[in-house]
Design a protein around this nucleic acid. Structure first.
Lengths: 154, 154
DNA sequence: TCTTGACCTCAAGCTTACTTGAGGCCGTAC
DNA sequence: GTACGGCCTCAAGTAAGCTTGAGGTCAAGA
């Protein structure tokens, strides 16, 4: 999708990127790209020399993978989130939007978790974390240590 | 744990938690706790039967480890961030504060990364991500794809 | 007395996310 | 023509973060 509308054909030669080009432009290692392909996270076609050729829209997928990696979300989750976005053609605006929204939701969750932790840690800084019972960091939402541990030195 | 204040000594028997107790109260698996100890992230003493005994303040360290894990920050980073906080005694208010602040900073960075990504993804949703050049997601701060890929539709 | 449960060690195994290495093809530059 | 760079495959290795398994100790309950 690069040149202007040569009209018609979906892919003129220039539309395709080699694995090295994709690597250079996304920052992902060549070996990582091959690996992502194995996982079905991205896809490529082959040229007459059996070399991978990537359509431009694949850059976006690679970027998503890098993002997931950067913030520690498992690639498997990414796969699920973008399962409905086609790999074999540029996704439609709508397809992309739908998946993006789900993914954004995922990011929001992640951010909120961190925000909560930040707040808790701020509390801990304030209290010096000497009050173990009150420390939210110590009681992460679920298993509250409430077995009457008795007084701690304050 | 559990009984109240037998008073005085820094460590009356009741002040110490078994590995099973720590596991129950932090949610970390027993095997994980042993692993964290190997890494030097937490520490324990032994009782007369060679079983691990954890001082209460260790719960906080375990909580920190769980947090790091939850948000995908490598344990090695945690180790560095809390390197100056002693393992062999309850950290002083000051020691804890200093390390906590560094760690909070780390959390903030993480959150900001995610916020940026969220914003970028929102942009992508808005634009349908058809404009590759403008897509921040595709150009994560560094390697900009500026090789004159020519106009894209839209 | 025997069993059960909680703990111990050490070694091996597993998952995720890749990297590295060996061996080989092809096209271009010197 | 040969060296080089970029690509290919397949297998093995690596690092992080644990879990699982084998084999053993000890104390308390039926």
């Amino acid at each position: 999708m690069t040149s202007d509308h040569p009209g018609g054909a979906r892919a003129t030669p220039d539309d395709w990127l080699s694995i090295g080009e994709v690597s250079a432009r996304t920052g992902a290692a060549v070996s990582a790209l091959r690996f992502y392909e194995e996982l079905g996270l991205i896809a490529s076609e082959r040229d007459e020399r059996n070399q991978r050729r990537y359509p431009r829209h694949m850059l976006r997928r690679v970027a998503l993978v890098s993002v997931a990696k950067r913030i520690g979300i498992p690639l498997q989750d990414l796969r699920e989130a973008f399962a409905d976005v086609p790999l074999d053609r540029p996704p439609s605006h709508q397809e992309w939007q739908r998946a993006s929204r789900g993914w954004k939701h995922r990011l929001e969750e992640r951010r909120q978790t961190i925000e909560r932790l930040e707040a808790e840690l701020t509390g801990c800084i304030g209290c010096g974390c000497l009050s173990m019972k009150a420390c939210a960091l110590l009681n992460p939402g679920d298993a509250l240590a409430e077995d009457g541990a008795g007084p701690r030195r304050l």
